[in-house]
Design a protein around this nucleic acid. Structure first.
Lengths: 241, 241
DNA sequence: TCCGGCATTTGATTTTGATCAAGTGAAAGC
DNA sequence: GCTTTCACTTGATCAAAATCAAATGCCGGA
């Protein structure tokens, strides 16, 4: 499917795009050299501090992004402040909800991150002309839908311990897709964020971490660095037999 | 967008498709008369009893469907039998997960229903040739993703009472999109299904129904028929201010 | 080095919803 | 007409997670 792209001479591709991950796993892989050049004219890279907002719930969508580095959390808040993380996105995911005026969610950097922004109307125009690009976005949407539904099972039916184990398993398998060894990693989320992802309080999250540590399912250093001696055992704790 | 379809003479369209809802709200609206004819050659309508399975978790996907009538529930089960409904689909929704071999969910009729089945490979071929069709499927996937994320907030952060009120509000607004009066309807799900949708037990669901009834938020006849005297009040009970 | 501000952990108590256990009521079968 | 069955409701008790309330530990700055 992507074979057609291989024979394009590298020098036709914009400099910043050449080493860019989003051209491989991401949506830009669907674009020709000219299209990349056009998109690149309007796009800009940004470094995001932890907590920096990419877009807010209820705001007009003016930009889409590719995540170049870091982890972005998607959250929904209720009027009284209760909050739920409804998705985590990792590089090189596409970030944005096509075909809608107003964002139904807030997207903010969970870790120090880097994104490549492009104006909504430029990409929308490109999508109309490039079925392959819409196909990529379609696949991305379906992937997110599968993930959302997996997480609904976790939110609705798992115990606190299973939820925390599920979270650790999710991070272990997503944080660094290249790494052969997923058994040691830094958590991209604070305890408060983890609680908002799991539909728990931070006290419950903390207690479950302690319990998993005492049962030697995980080791923790500096609150954020986790080592998993036996990934299958963690998976069983997560209820995924 | 669909303007091009208007000028096609009706007699070119297969008989069974002419009165079909899926041509309007659904995916078939993206097809030309010839394409409809081709798809129709391989498609078949089926009546489904309540509980009839359209596809099972882990099974190979061989068919896609359009829901013509009724409500279909999408569920996930854990090894120990715990179950979560991860989506409800109403006519004339498209039913199926393109680009994947094996279904990650079970789909079964929540009410007596009718579906129009077509072989996966026929539609897949059509999708490749018809960007407008992929666009429709893309939009459907994004709609389901929005709904899934809304529901994640409900599952993760709402109280039992808010969950039940949210469910009633969802049904009121989805069961009969044409109806001007959404304030009186039949529940398409049993108490057990509602519990599986809300991540609660059937006893808790029942108690919350009783409570909402006693507080005059809803009236119930014959266990299944619900009347909502004040939809805004129900919405407030659902936590959607 | 000490202090202040956070994030996290730990402890005590309360609350919510689950579990266990009977009821009730309506439709289906004998 | 009576029983059986099944879905649903109601009640009593229990357990898991929330809440309230202090610690603890860590990092950065004075």
């Amino acid at each position: 499917m992507e074979v057609r792209r291989q024979d394009i001479h590298n020098s036709d591709i914009p400099l910043v795009c050449r080493a860019c991950e989003a051209r491989h796993g991401g949506v830009c892989g669907a674009l020709t050299a000219e299209q990349l050049t056009e998109l690149n004219k309007h796009s800009s890279r940004h470094r995001l501090e932890t907590g920096a907002e990419v877009i807010g719930q209820g705001e007009a969508v003016v930009n889409y992004s590719n995540i170049m580095r870091g982890v972005v959390k998607l959250t929904k808040v209720m009027a009284d402040g209760r909050q739920q993380i409804v998705g985590l996105q990792f590089a090189p995911d596409f970030l944005g909800r096509p075909f809608i005026e107003e964002s139904a969610i807030t997207a903010e950097a969970a870790t120090e991150s880097e994104v490549c922004n492009f104006p909504r109307n430029v990409l929308d125009r490109l999508v109309k002309r490039t079925p392959e690009l819409e196909h990529k976005l379609h696949r991305q949407a379906l992937k997110e839908l599968d993930e959302a539904r997996d997480w609904m099972l976790t939110l609705g039916r798992k115990t606190a311990q299973e939820k925390v184990a599920s979270f650790l398993y999710l991070i272990a398998t997503h944080i660094d897709p290249e790494s052969v060894d997923a058994s040691s990693f830094d958590l991209p989320l604070s305890r408060a964020d983890i609680a908002d992802f799991l539909g728990l309080t931070i006290e419950t999250v903390s207690r479950q971490f302690t319990k998993l540590r005492k049962e030697n399912v995980i080791r923790i250093e500096n609150n954020r660095h986790v080592t998993v001696p036996d990934m299958d055992r963690l998976m069983r704790y997560a209820g995924n037999d």
